[in-house]
Design a protein around this nucleic acid. Structure first.
Length: 874
RNA sequence: GGGAGCAUAGCUCAGCUGGUUCAGAGCAUCUGCCUUACAAGCAGAGGGUCAGGGGUUCGAAUCCCUUUGCUCCCACCA
């Protein structure tokens, strides 16, 4: 077969992906084999593939493909997340662009638009994953809002409600005035923001004195219902016990309360209390029975409760009120101020703390087994440092606000009764039955279902169970077989949103961990260390990169730059390196493929030696790669393979066995070489699926096996022979020294040379044939004579001479020898210093001391040899 | 404010149980090669006070303390 001299992934990747799908190689059904399961972190249904997905899914695919090749029943379940708030925002924006306002639509009409949007844009991301080579079981594709998943969610809600874990109540929540919904604490991002600190005058009722209060939010004075000072504050001791102040502009009279909550150091030591719009003020309000005045509409404009600034947007109001306060002489001063402001994770607008009626899930009990599982390594975190983060959050866990004032999502299965009260049930029929227990006259028309939907994460947290329909059918064969899953690959940014909650759900609904290991990836950054973002425009389109460098090249780029938990500094150069590696593999195959085989040709010594050595290399590296993979040191494992293929196999092994131009190779060597190639391809396949399949199919090492996808990984079943490896390393060093001499003396590789050496019993010269081949040496001879006219070098304690026929520069040679001598004497001195230290010899382990003695002997031998060489030259 | 982590070659990082894998890899750089698999290649070279200081130890990149600089998470005093 004629192969192009450049590897071109374009057509071939699609060809093999189709081949894998046609042959159903990624599909899994429960059987007698050991299962290996990964559930994908479901991307947003309308999302687009970005670099983070590439990293995450490359890693998952490596693990899944490897497990599959280790004889496990590998199952990677793909799917998407309905992403309640993000998707709804997109649909609202799209409708707006078409001139349709969401508020003019009924719930049903809106949902029809949303589903239409989902059908059109949904799942594109899953198509994109195929380009990467992801070996997902596509038949199992799930959606967090499909029928089975929704049924599971509703069942869980009802169950938790009946267990008393879900409750409804008015609480201070994070309100998103843009999405018009409550958010959980985790969906609020705090950022430092430049603002102002306003010092306002609150006139004391019936007096011309006033108290100055510092606030960052002057517009909230509309909702002030008290002023608070610290009881220990000397500055306010003069205030009468029952003093009251007048809220500026508003004119409302409010009490002064005294509480140690107020920080004496901050501002003026006086705090305005707005129970409806600040979490801490809310607690003060509860404590002192203060009135709570909600001054905002849901969209963040001022409502008509107070009668001022009605309909004005909150930030606009702040600007206006600053002027009005100043005009009224109630503004003491304004200072620039930096403070932390919470923003909505999804819409980016400033969060408004707001009192509202929401559904909550009580977390304390759920957290207990989940905390234990991670702390005791029943679930292993990689890297382990995230255990601390997890523990801290779990031990201070707060109740989860699970209701959202949205339409896109699972509607809360609570039904309100006409005369107050409500029932919770999986279906309207069951709800009616329950309602009738309270009032037999009720009909379906009397029930009004809660308008809210559930937080997206309330479906995602069930994902490892729900993808196997283990909530509706807890005893089904699939869940029993695939659960718990093995590895979860995700980012640390969703450790609370998702990971922790899945663990809680796992214990609550399966009484078992949802996964055995969690591998946390880092964030993909650009090479300057900046987070990739649309705004910065520093995020390359992964599909463009795949088109340019091939999926394998892209995967290599991700693999080379990632270690668990560390951010990835992405550089397009890495893709290039990945592509080059594909090309290297490709060309190595071209080489092996082009040799003709002569069945009668005996195996040369060089070939025999190379095979003896490479057997040990493979044995050793396979063990090392296994070990690294076991520790999830995926990047290191890959790098090990990269060097094995490039340096050891291509750079040494193939060069040694390579026949002269157009000369045939012996059958034995070729067979072994193809065997190595097969083994290497299998090792590489999980990392680089396409190029390995392309070559493997041509190599056809195993006729009965349809694809490398389902071929088995090589195993390391014995210990590598260290002696062979060490002795070959000596030979390599000899070759390398010869290359140096060639370079120094300007002797071309084509020009053959001779080599003499002084035999050394400690290090007998081995792999002579390899040295001869690689060094292009016509004869290697043992002598006892030093050769002053030769270029000399030393490996271990053996001296080598390359005869130069007088081309030697004596002075330069001597200079070099003296430099070596000086170095060795210094080295020996440091060794001797250690060995003459009584305490070192007595307290260091025997092995270490013995090693120092060996170093001493070596150095002494070398020094003696160099001194003789100097004598011979002089 | 609380917690975690990081600092090793120009860049990205290994270095796991203190001691021959101890100062390493890949990339980049420089030099020489268009050598019949691959210039997307080959061969070679340079480059580091292991952030600073102190301690423990026979011995420290590695353990402890400290200073400095950076990152992340949590909390959210208006």
């Amino acid at each position: 077969m004629q192969l192009a001299d450049k590897y071109s992934p374009e057509n071939l990747e699609q060809k093999w992906y189709d081949f894998w799908i046609e042959n159903n190689l990624f599909h899994s059904e429960p059987d007698e084999r050991e299962p290996y399961t990964i559930v994908i972190p479901p991307p947003n249904v309308t999302g687009m593939l970005h670099m983070g997905h590439m990293l995450n899914n490359t890693l998952q695919d490596v693990l899944v493909r490897r497990a599959r090749m280790q004889g496990k029943n590998a199952c990677w379940v793909p799917g998407t997340d309905h992403a309640s708030i993000a998707t709804e925002a997109k649909v609202v924006a799209k409708l707006k662009a078409e001139g349709i306002d969401k508020s003019t639509l009924t719930r049903e009409e809106f949902l029809a638009h949303a589903w239409e949007w989902k059908e059109k844009h949904g799942g594109i991301i899953l198509q994109q994953l195929r380009k990467l080579g992801a070996s997902c079981d596509w038949e199992r594709t799930c959606f967090t809002m499909d029928e089975a998943r929704t049924a599971g969610v509703i069942k869980v809600f009802v169950d938790l409600f009946r267990k008393g874990r879900i409750y409804r109540g008015v609480r201070m929540v994070n309100w998103d005035p843009s999405a018009l919904t409550a958010l959980s604490d985790e969906e609020v991002i705090y950022k430092e923001s430049q603002g102002k600190l306003y010092y306002l005058r609150y006139m004391i009722e019936g007096s011309d004195k006033y108290i100055v209060v510092a606030t960052t939010r002057p517009e909230t004075i509309l909702g002030d219902t008290a002023l608070c000072v610290n009881p220990n504050d000397e500055r306010y001791k003069w205030l009468p016990e029952d003093a009251r102040v007048i809220v500026p502009l508003v004119g409302r009279s409010i009490p002064i309360i005294r509480d140690e909550y107020v920080d004496l150091e901050f501002g003026t030591g006086a705090l305005k209390v707005t129970p409806a719009h600040d979490v801490n003020d809310y607690m003060l309000g509860e404590k002192y029975g203060l009135e709570s005045i909600d001054i905002f509409n849901d969209n963040g404009t001022i409502n008509d409760k107070v009668g001022l600034y009605v309909g004005v947007e909150r930030f606009e109001c702040r600007r206006i009120i600053e002027g009005d306060l100043t005009a009224a002489g109630l503004m003491e001063r304004v200072e620039p101020y930096t403070n932390n402001v919470g923003y909505s994770e999804r819409t980016g607008v400033a969060i408004e703390p707001k009192l509202s009626m929401q559904w909550f899930l009580s977390m304390e009990e759920l957290a207990k087994p989940a905390t234990k599982a991670v702390l005791e390594d029943i679930i292993k975190f990689v890297p382990a440092k995230y255990k601390n983060t997890y523990r801290h959050w779990m031990e201070n866990i707060k109740d989860w606000c699970i209701s959202r004032q949205l339409w896109w999502g699972q509607r809360i299965p609570a039904y309100y009764l006409p005369k107050g009260g409500y029932v919770v049930a999986e279906t309207a029929e069951e709800a009616l039955a329950l309602a009738r227990e309270k009032d037999a006259s009720l009909t379906m028309a009397d029930l009004r279902q809660d308008e809210d939907v559930l937080d997206t994460w309330f479906s995602s947290w069930l994902w490892p169970i729900s993808v196997f329909d283990g909530l509706r059918y807890p005893d089904n064969d699939e869940i029993k077989y695939y659960y718990p899953t093995n590895d979860l690959i995700t980012g640390p940014d969703i450790i609370f949103f998702w990971v922790a909650r899945m663990i809680m759900a796992g214990y609550e609904y399966r009484n078992e961990k949802p996964f055995g290991n969690v591998y946390f990836t880092g964030i993909v950054r650009d090479k300057l260390g900046r987070k990739m973002s649309k705004q910065l425009g520093n995020s390359p389109d992964p599909l463009d990169l795949i088109a340019k460098y091939g999926a394998d090249g892209m995967r290599v780029a991700m693999l080379m730059s990632t270690s668990a938990g560390n951010d990835v500094m992405f550089d397009e150069g890495l893709c290039e390196q990945g592509r080059n590696f594909c090309n290297k593999i490709w060309n190595a195959y071209r080489l092996v493929n082009m040799w003709s085989v002569d069945e009668t040709l005996p195996q040369s010594d060089a070939c025999r030696e190379a095979i003896e050595w490479f057997d040990e290399v493979m044995t050793e590296r396979i063990a090392r790669i296994d070990d690294e993979m076991r520790q999830y040191r995926i990047s290191d494992a890959f790098m090990e393979l990269y060097r094995l293929f490039w340096d050891d196999f291509s750079g040494w092994y193939l060069e040694i066995i390579k026949p002269a131009y157009q000369a045939p190779a012996d059958a034995k060597t070729i067979a072994r070489t193809k065997y190595y190639f097969d083994q290497l391809l299998r090792l590489l396949h999980p990392f680089m699926p396409f190029v390995t399949e392309e070559i493997w199919q041509d190599l056809k090492p195993e006729k009965s096996c349809i694809s490398i996808v389902v071929a088995q990984q090589p195993k390391s079943e014995r210990k590598a022979n260290e002696q062979i490896l060490a002795r070959f390393a000596v030979a390599q060093e000899v070759v390398s020294s010869i290359r140096n001499i060639r370079k120094q003396k300007n002797i071309a590789q084509k020009e053959s040379i001779t080599l003499n050496y002084i035999a050394d019993d400690n290090y007998p010269l081995e792999y002579e044939a390899v040295i001869a081949k690689m060094g292009n040496i016509s004869s290697i001879t043992a002598t006892t004579e030093k050769d002053a006219t030769a270029a000399a070098f030393m490996v271990k304690t053996t001296q080598y001479f390359v005869p130069m026929e007088g081309k030697i520069d004596k002075e330069a040679e001597l200079e070099k020898l003296h430099a070596d001598l000086e170095y060795l004497e210094g080295f020996l001195a440091s060794v001797m210093k250690k060995l003459s230290n009584e305490r070192f010899v007595s307290s260091a382990p025997e092995k270490v001391v013995a090693n120092e003695r060996a170093k001493q002997a070596d150095a002494e031998a070398k020094i003696a040899a160099i001194k003789e060489q100097i004598k011979a030259l002089a």
